[in-house]
């Protein structure tokens, strides 16, 4: 492995992590502004022009918050938990290509870390499946019954909805005939999979919202019942890390949805100006993020038993049905 290649990888990784971190900061502002508009309010508009410095102000405030560790907490795991929560959110984008291959200064560059590996989709599922640990550990290590309840809820919820999530991925995988993210994007050159897989897309969206603990599935941190759930005992930067993980996961899920179902970086005139690719992807991601905020502004939280019943009795059978239908159609049409 040459040094130039290594450097390229380091830069790419840094860029992807910066997308999540910078995106996280401004996603909080975006969410608050959109949410405010939907409630006919204005939202934060004081810090800087149009409130653009609000994330900075929030960050400064959180840094100077007092870091508390409860008496009953398990100190090691209590400190470790926020870190464990953030890592999956940061690494999950590694298999998502941000744009088509371009040739610059006689070298070919790919906007993405490992979009060509043949288990790309499985990688996403694997990272999503270990994302629950941070929350569980946080809930347990806090030594607080509300936090523990949040942790227990999140385990049950994420394990249940992971199945539906995986089944929703099966549709695009079958259509593309590959688990590589690159192949899935290539397969959408003419028609986005959201049109071929409307049910799959719907299942993915629902399962993904549950997987990232967003409203209306934000059971692990249901304020009215659990104070703040798993992060009830956290303050300062440790709390900020949970916040970062949550919003990082939102961004990651939007990237994944855009890539798996909305054609990723594909769009018109891409072959003439390949640099349009990241812009198309950005637009799709922002649209999906808007949708996530929109959902939060609209729907009340599910009751816990309703959530589990919905996941196992409706979403999972629907996912299986979708796989069967897709398979039958592929066989009939001949792929």
């Amino acid at each position: 492995m040459s040094w130039a290649l290594l450097l390229e990888w380091v830069i790419k990784s840094a860029v992807i992590i910066m997308i999540i971190l910078g995106g996280f900061a401004y996603l909080t502002l975006f969410e608050r502004r959109v949410l405010a508009r939907m409630q006919t309010r204005i939202g934060p508009n004081r810090a800087g022009p149009w409130g653009l410095l609000q994330p900075v102000a929030d960050g400064i405030k959180l840094i100077f918050n007092e870091e508390l560790i409860p008496e009953q907490a398990d100190r090691v795991l209590f400190i470790l938990a926020p870190v464990i929560t953030v890592v999956p959110a940061l690494i999950i984008l590694a298999v998502i290509p941000l744009g088509p291959e371009v040739t610059l200064f006689g070298r070919r560059y790919v906007f993405g870390l490992a979009s060509n590996i043949n288990v790309g989709v499985l990688y996403i599922l694997a990272v999503a499946s270990i994302a629950v640990y941070g929350i569980v550990i946080a809930g347990w290590a806090s030594g607080n019954k509300y936090a523990l309840m949040g942790g227990v809820r999140s385990t049950a919820q994420m394990v249940s909805y992971e199945l539906a999530l995986a089944l929703a991925f099966v549709g695009p995988i079958m259509l593309a005939g590959s688990m590589s993210v690159d192949a899935i994007i290539e397969g959408q050159t003419h028609l986005w999979y959201v049109i071929l897989q409307p049910l799959g897309f719907l299942i993915f969206l629902i399962a993904a919202v549950a997987e990232i603990n967003r409203a209306p599935f934000d059971m692990p941190e249901a304020e009215q019942e659990l104070v703040a759930g798993y992060h009830a005992e956290y303050s300062g930067m440790k709390f900020a890390l949970f916040f970062m993980a949550e919003y990082g996961k939102m961004i990651a899920v939007s990237f994944i949805a855009a890539t798996m179902f909305l054609g990723g970086y594909l769009g018109p005139f891409l072959d003439r100006w390949p640099l349009l690719g990241p812009i198309y992807l950005f637009i799709k991601v922002v649209a999906l993020l808007f949708f996530l905020v929109w959902l939060r502004a609209t729907f009340p939280r599910f009751r816990y038993d309703q959530l589990m019943a919905f996941g196992w009795k409706i979403l999972l059978p629907l996912g299986l049905l979708n796989v069967v239908i897709t398979g039958v159609i592929i066989v009939l049409v001949g792929g």
Binding site: L122, A126, S129, I130, V132, V152, T155, M158
Partner: peptide, 19 residues
């Protein structure tokens, strides 16, 4: 698959039961 199945599903259920 090792990560998804063992770390991601089975051990999560173990933790769930323990807690």
């Amino acid at each position: 698959v090792q990560i998804t199945v063992y770390a991601g599903a089975i051990m999560v259920l173990f933790l769930f039961v323990i807690m």
